[in-house]
Structure formats: C-alpha cells, structure tokens
Write a protein that binds this DNA or RNA. Sequence first.
DNA 1: CGCCTTTGACCGGCGC
DNA 2: GCGCCGGTCAAAGGCG
Length: 354
Amino acid sequence: MNTLSFFLLSPKLSPPLFSLSIPTTITNDINFFNDTFFDKSLFGLINVADFGLSLYEWLGIAEEDASLVERRVKHLLPSLPPNAIILESSGIVAHSQNPVISIIPTNNPDVVVANNSNTNNTVGLKRSATSIVSENVNLRGDELDDEQNNITIRLKLRESTMALIAATMNMNNKRNKNNLSKFTFLTKSETENLEDGYKWRKYGKKSLKKSPFQRNYYRCTTIGCNAKKRVERCLNDPTYALTTYEGFHTHDLPPILPPPSRSFGLYNNSTLSSILSRGRSIQKGVASNAGAGARARYHTNNTITSVNARTDSGSGVNNIGSLENIGIRLFEDIINLSSVAPQYHHHRHQPTSL
DNA sequence: CGCCTTTGACCGGCGC
DNA sequence: GCGCCGGTCAAAGGCG
Ligand SMILES: [Zn+2]
C-alpha cells in the first residue's frame, strides 16, 4: 500500500519516538471527507478545532497584510462543485473579530478556494499539481500558484492535517473496535494532566510491561459522553507525556471560569511574531510548528458558508484561557518526516507504530 | 452528600 | 486452550 511516513517527535529529541504511516489512498476520495469523518476526527476529540493559524499565518503572511493577499491572489472560481468541502480555518481562537477563513477545495485538484466570510471576499488559489492527497489536505509543503500575478506561496505542512489523518487512520483501524477515533499527543510537561478544556474522571491505572511508568485512564465526566483518554509518561524521555484521546464528546466544551482578563486569542502579538519568524525559517524544510486549526463541512449545494466549530455564540465565556500555551505545544512535536533532515529517512530505531 | 481517586478483581483479545 | 497483558468495573475511601 502506498503510504506516507511521519514521525512524532520533539525537535529536541533524536531519534524520533514514534512513526505514523499514513495510507494515501484513504484520502483520495473526496467523499471520504463527510460529516462523519470530521465529527469523528481529531476535532471531535478535544478542543483544538480553533487552535492554530489563520490562512494568513498559514501562508506566512501577517494578518494585517490580508488585503495584500487578496490583491495578489485574486482569480475567482465561477462555481463550486456540489460536494465541495468547506474547510475552515478560523485561526485564532474563535472570536467575532477574527476573520473566518474557509478553504474550499474543489473537484479540480489544482484549485483551492479561500473565502473570508467576514468580508465575503473569495480568492481562488491554484495549487501545484504535485499535491499528493485530497483537496483539503496539504501533506507536504504544497505551493499555491497564481500564474497571472506570477507569485508562488509555499504552504507549510499543517500538523493538524496530519493529526486529522492520523485520527482517521485510527478510526479505520480494525483493532479500534468501536470505530472510534484515536490520537496521541506527545507533550513536554511535568504534570501528566493535559489541560484540554474537558473534565475527566480517572477510572483506572495500569502498570505496563514495557514501561516503568503507569498508564492512567480517564473518562469524560459528562453523562452520556463516551470520550476517554489515557495518559502515560514517555518511555524514552520521561519529561514527555503521552496523551491518547479516544471517542467523541457528545456535548459542547464546558465553559471555563472565570474568563481571563486579558484579551481573547490563542497568540498574543509577540508569540505570533515568533511563530511567524519560526515559520520563515521553516521554509527551508527543517521543521514545522503549530498546526492550523481547521474545521470542515460537507456541503450539498453551491453556497459558500462557513461553519465554525467553536464560534463564540454570544456568551463571551467560550474562552479556553489556560489552553493558550498548550495550543502551541499540542502540535509542535509533530514533524513531517519528508521535510526533516535526511538522516531521519533511514530510521536507525524501529519506531513504534501508533 | 456528591464527586472524585484508589485499587484489586475481572475480563477479553491475542500469541504461543 | 491457557496465560499474559492491558482495559474496565466497581467497591471502598477521601475530601470539600
Ligand atoms: Zn465529553
């Protein structure tokens, strides 16, 4: 089977700790990305839907330069296919003042449409034909080309995309008896509690054969919710914690009280600029950083609508406060194998499969 | 009291 | 089939 290999690791850790082999075939069918897929993917697991980068950040351009993007890249697609997927990247934590960006793949593998639902501006982006996977997935630094204006924008690998696909893999894993999505985060943290916004009750603890550390089992406290997670120390480096999520929350994210006094948003300006500067260095293909939050909806008509996963619906409480820092950490340890230094290609250690 | 963790028992899948 | 291993149950206790 044709697969892509990714490694889960920290930039500080060599060799990689885990590998992910992702079948490319499962993503070739656009019908694969339906409601079930997105509901039962990573975004249904924890509140990471709105983590990550806006399209502008995603493109390596500061948000203030949005108009610049729209001026430069502006050929418009006349119509959308009936089954167009609207992949939404709301960027910074959902908040009304943030632009809502939709990436709208089409049946034409060379074309992606981006829509800002605030301004209702739509831009058509031509993508190089070297894309491997389906329309809303850019697995390895795809390029957006605008031939008319003779510019090329190189996209970084989006870790959230990998997470999405990895979760999908787990979803399709036969050993995953309940067809539940499963995904593991590797985070450097002293505490084993990954603040993911949900409330968990511990229901078990196990000593493991191959690890001196114990594995803790948690279940979501919301009644009727079958979401679970387990947490253990990383065998290779105990300063890392492995958090594996399984199942889907049947409810909204419980509000976190009290809301922090500072401004909303995943990144403040300084973090953002540091991220962006990191992003520039990444263009050499060394590593990638925080993933682009994304949410997609399967549409049956031609309308361009955005469905924001965590839109702030007026309450003002829908803030994930303490998650600010973690939002970055969640994905920073995931690195695309094909964009990493060559020595990783021939892994000297047989990586553990997830 | 309500809700949590603790902890040994239980149990099912899988490899030998 | 049997025993190991890991996931879950549930009784009991902790804590505010
Ligand atoms: Zn839940």
